[in-house]
Nucleic acid binder design. Structure first.
Lengths: 125, 125
DNA sequence: TTTATAGTTCGCTAATTGACTAAACACAGT
DNA sequence: ACTGTGTTTAGTCAATTAGCGAACTATAAA
């Protein structure tokens, strides 16, 4: 029962749910892309991804400086179906989809550079 | 998205998950039966059922002094399937099933009387 | 009408959780 | 070796939550 409960707990956060849904539509995403989509601090995103990984919902691989996450191959099919059906009309998910289109149109390198620049400009304000 | 997230949050507690699964196997259960199964205070069970009701997972009816809860007719089928599949081998659920056999073999009246007697005997200890 | 009963709500406590910043880590780039 | 980059971990704070007992509510029973 612990495994199922961990999954339920992992999904009991709006941002983590958004990540899971985004990963049902995209093979994999890197932390900086998820960070950009959610609009949170990198540290927070990392924490969230850790929760999802511990719940065995996602797995990760490292390539160069970037860490990419994807859904595990054993992701429960019924759960995926429920999420997609129940969130089919959700405006927040549609917004994520649109913003991801832009995010995915550039390489992680460029994206991370943009995030850094944005962060510094905030620091100067 | 709020509706789906509320459901996820409602399920992110072991006891509430156990109640939902019990209700997939039993048409309806009254508070005192759920209380007996979970081994919690009535107040706590009532609070939990309120969460499930607010998440639109269960509905209630009152008969005499008893309140009965059942799954809503719109309970997401995929979600039910996922829960039943992933919890098919869970020892805790099996234990609940067994204890419910005993609980359901007597009327709410008798059960409530037993619970009251048990509570008083604790008070005397 | 009064008393009893079952469930709900309130308030408290302790634990957990989401967001952030800063520091640490892993390792690529120079 | 040193510097830069992206991510992870640790610590803090505020908000939320699960469990309980007490008080309250709804209403059945006497």
């Amino acid at each position: 029962m612990e495994k199922t409960l961990n999954i339920a707990k992992a999904l009991a956060d709006g941002n983590r749910m958004r990540v899971i849904v985004a990963l049902t539509e995209n093979d994999e995403l890197c932390v900086c892309q998820i960070t950009e989509m959610l609009g949170l601090a990198t540290a927070t995103v990392s924490r969230h991804m850790s929760v999802l990984q511990n719940a065995r919902l996602v797995e990760s691989r490292k390539e160069s400086r970037w860490v990419f996450y994807r859904l595990v191959g054993t992701f429960p099919d019924r759960l995926r179906q429920w999420l997609r059906e129940s969130l089919a009309e959700a405006p927040e998910i549609a917004a994520d989809r649109r913003s991801l289109t832009t995010i995915l149109s550039c390489e992680p390198d460029d994206l991370c550079r943009r995030q850094k620049k944005r962060k510094e400009s905030h620091a100067c304000t």
